[in-house]
Amino acid sequence: MNNMQLIANYVPGKSFFHRLHPSTKIIWVLGALLTVFFIKDPLIIFAFLVVVLVLIKASNTFATYRASLMLLLPIIFGLIFFQIVAPAFPKPWTPLARLGPFVLYNEGVYSALVLSLRIISVASFALLFIMTTYPGDLFTTMRMWGVPYEISFMVTTTIQLIPILQKEMNIILSAQRSRAMQASGFSALLPSIIPVFAGAIERVRQMSMTLESRAFGSSGKKTSIRQLKMGTLDYTLIILTIIALIGIFYLLWINQGFDRSQQMIFPAPAAIILFLGSIIGFFGILVLFARRIKN
């Protein structure tokens, strides 16, 4: 069914981004997140997005990226729709056009652009990080940063369990359909969900015993097969990033986030096209998803 989505997004490779230490990348993602959330100029965010896209292309992760970004589309379309008619800006708003009960505002088009570009660019950058970081390294880094081993163990186990339970679920759905269960609707809910849960939780006892026998939770420093080292490059980059962030925030502060909502005037037809496009896009993508689930 949708197993493709469930495999971890890591794409093996040897690009520049792949070789960076996860810590460096995490600081970049956090930095980008903070910056992008305070910038109010869609053009600057768009420029940032272009840079991220170039990096994604350069690290050979574009195919995975595209599939993952698809999941965001319904929310982006919804966002454009709501922002055009109810902008996230203080009133008064400048009306551009009227469609039935909805008034389309200039500030709305502006904030639709800002918010959607914001989400897409942050998601893209975060995906780039996920796609180029071996999950094991991520957990090693989490421990380096003081996150308890138990937590990273639980996250790893969750990720490994998902495809297993997904497969179980498919068998269970087949088994119940063989008993003439309805293919959809609430009457099929308990017959489908209880065997999955009960079976999975029975597994817990075995897992628990396995952990016990491997001395889980014993004190002492844990060692790791994969060695991760922060290189000179990583330290240099982290320091540069911090300096850059301070500079960026100073600029943002004195320019009030580069808010250009009062200068940018959009033509009414553009607002109408964007508005109608968001409705078509929203339903189109939901129908597409529903079809994919069916097959």
């Binding site: 069914m1 949708n2 469930l6 163990f153 639980m154 996250v155 186990t157 969750t158 369990l161 998902i162 339970l165 997904q166 679920m169 759905l173 293919a183 959809s184 609707g185 609430f186 099929a188 809910l189 489908s192 969900i193 999955v196 849960f197 999975a200 939780i201 597994r203 817990v204 897992m207 529903a290 689930i293």
Partner: peptide, 19 residues
């Protein structure tokens, strides 16, 4: 982790049964 994975599988079942 089993419960966490089941949260995710729960939403897949929800989609599969079109609820």
């Amino acid at each position: 982790p089993v419960a966490a994975a089941l949260n995710i599988v729960g939403s897949t079942i929800n989609a599969a049964l079109r609820l």
